[in-house]
Each structure stands twice: as C-alpha cells, then as structure tokens.
C-alpha cells in the first residue's frame, strides 16, 4: 500500500523533543536529541541496535525518564508530569512492542477487552464486542478472536499487539521494531498495516526500525540516529543521497532495497 502523506499538518506538532539526554551507568545513549513529530506524519527512526532508538520511545511513553532536555507530547511536558496526568496522556499513545507483549494468560478477545473495560466506562457488552470486532477486522484477524497468544504466528501476534493499542483510539502510535523477526512477506503486510492504521485512525507515528524496507514503505520522514544524536533527516531517498557517511552507506547496502 502506497503512503498517502497529504494529511500531514506541518503547523501542528504532536511531539516536540529538545536536547534529550539519557545515560545508563556511564554509557550515554542519547546525547542531545532534537526532533518533532507532526500531526498525521509517520516518522521513521533508523539506527543500529543499541543506539537508543527504543530508549527514545520509552521516554516518550513515560517508561523511562530523561536525564536532561524536554519532551512535549500533545502539549504536555512529560519530564515533570504527575503519574495521574501521565496515565491520562498514555491513553492517547499506543505502544506496539517489539515482542508484541500480549498477555499470555488471556485470549485475543480478552487482550483487547482488558484495556477497554479498564478505561472506557459504561460500555455495554454489545458495544465492547462491536469495538473488538471492528479492530480485529481492521488488522485482518477476525478469525483469531478466541485464540490464545501462544497459538498465533509472529506476524499475527504483531497484528494483535497493534490492535490492542488501537482499541483505545490513540492519537500517537509508537512502533518498536514492527518487522523484527518476520519473514519478508509478513513484513510487507505489517508495513501495509502501519499505513492503513494511519489512514483509518488518523494517527501520527514514530516507527523504530533498522529495516530499510519498512522505513521506505512507511516513513514520510526518516531520521538516522548515530552516536546518540539525530543526523541526516528527510525523505528516505534524501537521507541516503545526502551523505557519503560510511556507516549510513553500509546500512543501506546491507539491506536489500531495489
């Protein structure tokens, strides 16, 4: 599915990050990251493993705290936010985990029902079921409703993980390595799903990946995270044309892009 980027509102930032720094012990992972995400945009963050890509979205979702800098999400500064306000904000952010993180003890239906029942009050059983059916249809897995996560394939788990985040109708989607560990055909399906989600639910998204096929298919804008800072920002083609940086070129050459 081809990306349609006509809906991006460049005058409306949903995430704005300035001078973000984060260290673990003596290892400084993020050394001053500056980036904006615009409404309706899919931003792809590329980089090698261990460069702090996942750390970035974990800070955005409040799972980790920044050492320095500001992180403004939907108008709220989250570096000094209260737990109560953070929880309210989290309902507007969908986080798709690398390993899907489905609740093992629950069926697919229960996985989707759980956040819905917790956060949307006064929903009848019929409305809950309608919501679940609609979301499962959106991710193309209506038939898996009564299956356990252990019975699903890797690609199906990813889809259900995305469905679980979509059930609360988030404004921002954070995808952590959405195509990691999947075969090329399933990767294309997931890339299409990411674009369909953006089209259908009008979300803005940050996609963390080192898969250039995914970056090319889903990204309106691509940034490279190198040595703790964002470098080489632009469309996919721009990023790989504007530099002869050896690391960037190696990154490109080792992926199979036509």
């Amino acid at each position: 599915m081809k990306r349609n980027n006509d809906n991006i509102k460049y005058d409306s930032k949903v995430i704005s990050i300035r001078n973000l720094k984060k260290a673990f012990d003596d290892f400084e992972v993020l050394k001053g990251v500056d980036v904006d995400l615009y409404q309706g945009e899919n931003l792809v963050v590329l980089g090698r493993s261990g460069t702090g890509k996942s750390v970035l979205i974990k800070i955005i979702s409040g799972l980790l705290r920044a050492d320095e800098g500001t992180v403004n999400v939907l108008g709220q500064e989250i570096t000094n936010i209260t737990i109560k306000n953070l929880d309210r904000l989290r309902l507007k952010i969908g986080f798709s985990f690398q390993n899907s993180a489905l609740y093992d003890s629950m069926t697919v239906k229960e996985n989707l029902e759980f956040p819905l029942r917790r956060h949307v009050k006064n929903l009848s059983t019929k409305e809950v079921n309608q919501n679940i059916e609609m979301i499962l249809e959106a991710v193309g897995l209506s038939q898996a409703i009564n299956q356990m996560p252990s019975e699903l394939s890797g690609g199906q788990r990813k889809r259900i993980g995305i469905a679980r985040t979509l059930i609360l109708k988030p404004e921002i989607m954070l995808y952590d390595e959405p195509t990691a560990g999947l075969d090329p055909i399933t990767c294309i399906d997931i890339n299409n799903l990411i674009n369909e989600v953006q089209e259908r639910f009008h979300t803005s998204a940050i996609i963390i990946t080192h898969d250039l096929t995914c970056a090319k298919a889903t990204g309106d804008r691509v940034v490279m995270l190198l040595d703790g800072r964002f470098k080489y920002e632009g469309t996919f083609e721009d990023v790989f044309k504007q530099t002869d940086d050896e690391m960037v070129q190696r990154f490109h050459d080792y992926n199979f892009i036509e």
Partner: peptide, 20 residues
Amino acid sequence: AEIGSMKVSEQIEALEVSAI
C-alpha cells in the same frame, strides 16, 4: 514464574503504557 515471565516479555511495560 508468572510475574517473572511477564517482566521479561515486556507484559509489565505493556500494562504500564496502557495506564494500568
């Protein structure tokens, strides 16, 4: 074992980002 496996498979973080 139950909470440990939830921890290592990011299910605890999944609860957290779902505001639970």
